[in-house]
Amino acid sequence: MKTFDQLGVIGLREWINLPELGMVGLRAKIDTGASTSCLHASDIQPFDRDGEPWVRFTAHIGTLVQRRHRCEAQLVSVKSIKSSNGHTQSRYVIRTLLTLGEREWPVEFTLTCRKTMRYRVLLGSKALVDGQLLVNPALTYVQNKPTLADLSGAQ
């Protein structure tokens, strides 16, 4: 059997940070069937900053006790996404740093309403490839839970 020493191992669910958005300790579900990652957002408003397209949105943190967190990020694109139920919707795409364990790298997220879903963040296959991660679906929360001190790139 081949081994892949350069790849980090993660479980089906992991704790992450989004330091550029000022968000720490988010539970993310790993979704290898999705190409793009997504983040639960509402009140999404596009705007221009210095001639560049940006977007403002409210991110929702937590499942039992929800906190709202207002964010701004540069808009990368608008993408048509086909959901698992077959519906296609247009979503804003942002790119922000993601911290998982000891790794940090830029990840593209689509912004969408996930209020009926258990996990507010899904990590898709592109994020896993870029982060050089291998998923063991028999495990959960393999990497350490991030802390406020881990917000190295926070604004």
Rank of each mutant, 00 (worst) to 15 (best):
K115V: 11
R118H: 14
L26D: 03
L148Y: 06
H87P: 10
D48H: 05
V142H: 02
R13A: 02
L75C: 09
F57D: 08
V55L: 04
S77W: 00
W54A: 00
D5L: 10
R68N: 15
V107I: 12
G51N: 04
L75M: 15
E20K: 00
Q143N: 09
T36W: 01
V129H: 07
M23I: 15
L64E: 13
R27K: 01
Q66F: 08
V107D: 06
R91M: 14
T3C: 06
A138M: 04
I30N: 02
L100K: 00
Q132K: 12
D130T: 13
V78G: 01
Q89V: 12
V142L: 03
F57T: 08
R67N: 14
M117H: 01
R49H: 03
Q155L: 12
A154H: 11
V9W: 06
E72H: 12
L128W: 09
I61A: 05
L111H: 08
L98I: 10
C71Y: 13
K29R: 03
V24A: 05
G124Y: 00
R91H: 13
V65H: 14
A28H: 12
E20G: 04
G62R: 00
W54L: 01
V142I: 05
T140F: 00
T99P: 02
V107Y: 07
L21C: 09
S84C: 03
